[in-house]
């Protein structure tokens, strides 16, 4: 037990500041703080996300997992992944949406209470870039998430980095 506590102390707090919302990079500091205030103002308490893998290669999931490591610490910002779409404010969907997942994705979307946000993740989920084209619609897939349910924000990348994912989630909140 002592070695465990010692390790926790020695590791310290690793959480890094929130990324700037826009792609342009550095923004003035107050902007970052305002973002957190925005989350609280818009959502009252916190944001809850239901992740739906509708056909990814699991690369996007690796980066979504990374969002909760101590560096990005998404949960520490009041953004939490939940087990049911009924508890969720946002669906975070990876693709390309397979035909075998199309119905399940529609049902999950129907079960998410309004007002809801949908973020499409990855080149496949957004239907963009070279990889998005490689995994475009065919006999087994519907292609991009927006071909199946309405999408608010797109986070391209193969896979998108945790910082890009955080920017996308924050952008959706501000739009919502």
């Amino acid at each position: 037990m002592i070695s465990l506590l010692k390790r926790i102390l020695r590791t310290g707090i690793l959480t890094e500041p929130l990324p700037a919302p826009a792609e342009q990079g550095a923004q003035p500091e107050p902007e970052l703080e305002r973002l957190h205030d925005d989350i609280l103002a818009i959502l009252g308490r916190a944001l809850t996300i239901r992740e739906v893998d509708a056909g990814s290669c699991n690369g996007c999931e690796l980066e979504i997992h990374a969002l909760n490591n101590p560096y990005y610490n998404l949960e520490g910002r009041g953004i939490k992944f939940v087990a049911s779409p009924r508890h969720a404010d946002m669906l975070l969907v990876t693709g390309p949406v397979t035909k075998n997942m199309e119905n399940a994705l529609r049902i999950a979307h129907d079960c998410t209470p309004d007002p809801k946000l949908v973020v499409a993740v990855g080149d496949c989920g957004c239907g963009c870039g070279e990889v998005g084209a490689l995994f475009g619609p065919n006999y087994a897939t519907c292609g991009a998430v927006e071909n199946v349910i309405p999408v608010d924000v797109r986070v391209p990348g193969c896979p998108p980095t945790p910082v890009a994912l955080m920017r996308g989630i924050l952008a959706a909140i501000r739009r919502g």
Partner: peptide
């Protein structure tokens, strides 16, 4: 089979 994206056909 839920992840079946027709990769082999691609």
């Amino acid at each position: 089979g839920y992840q079946h994206k027709g990769v082999e056909r691609r």
